[in-house]
């Protein structure tokens, strides 16, 4: 799956990987706000933003080409809306939509590519994200693989019984709908099993973190310097 690669990137050991997730999250929020409020034709500012992202990727040792390629996943959506804006005569907005959405995606990929998900979630929780949301994200991430594997098995089982002529479109739709229902039911039973396994290991409803986060002077310096650069680039 696509996020396996990003998962591998996040296990690196660069200065950017070493930063506390809260510092990176604060810088990301600053970046996104600065980018969102930048005019679509403020090309020097956008160039500084893009250069910062490229520098971040290089410092983190991430393959820039693959990172930029992966960020293109956003383009089908943003280009669609960009075309609509262009046809409506709002050319500047159309360009801004595409370039800002793309740069935002690169920034988010840079964050998740330099922060293991458990630490990223701990950072979000420390910054005030509700615990329930963090837990949901954690379990969704963990079981995405298992559920997708089950979905693949169901798809394979359906394909094996399709016959050489293939099913009609209506039949295929019914089979897909049935498989989805089975997948939901299995996910429910799996959730019950996971809960039992958690209880069996003395779970009382609260996760205790194994590696508590530490926001050191280097993290403060990183947040202040990059944040200041983004704000300066934005107001000039």
């Amino acid at each position: 799956m696509h996020h396996v690669l990003v998962d591998q990137w996040s296990q690196g050991s660069s200065p950017l990987h070493a930063r506390d997730p809260r510092a990176k999250l604060l810088v990301l929020v600053t970046f996104l706000v600065a980018l969102a409020t930048t005019a679509g034709n403020a090309f020097p500012t956008l160039a500084v933003d893009a250069a910062l992202l490229a520098a971040g990727a290089l410092i983190a040792g991430l393959p820039l080409g693959r990172l930029l390629l992966r960020a293109m996943a956003i383009l089908p959506f943003s280009v669609t809306f960009g075309i609509i804006s262009w046809l409506a005569g709002e050319h500047l907005r159309a360009i801004a939509l595409v370039e800002k959405s793309y740069l935002s995606t690169v920034a988010v990929l840079l964050l998740v590519g330099t922060t293991p998900l458990p630490r990223l979630l701990s950072g979000l929780e420390a910054l005030g994200t509700p615990r329930l949301l963090v837990l949901l994200a954690q379990f969704l991430y963990r079981y995405l693989f298992v559920i997708s594997e089950q979905a693949q098995h169901l798809r394979l089982a359906a394909a094996c019984r399709e016959g050489s002529s293939g099913a009609h479109r209506h039949g295929k739709f019914r089979a897909a709908a049935g498989a989805l229902a089975v997948l939901f039911a299995r996910s429910y039973y799996r959730a019950e099993g996971i809960h039992q396994a958690m209880l069996a290991r003395a779970f009382t409803g609260r996760f205790s973190p194994l590696n508590p986060l530490r926001f050191g002077p280097a993290d403060g310096f990183f947040t202040a310097v990059i944040g200041a650069m983004l704000i300066l680039a934005r107001i000039q």
Partner: peptide, 21 residues
């Protein structure tokens, strides 16, 4: 089903889950 028992993001965190509790 071991997949139901291994719910933490890494092996170390999963094995440490019980002792932390």
């Amino acid at each position: 089903d071991s997949d139901e028992q291994l719910f933490m993001p890494t092996v170390l965190e999963d094995v440490a889950f019980g002792p932390l509790n």
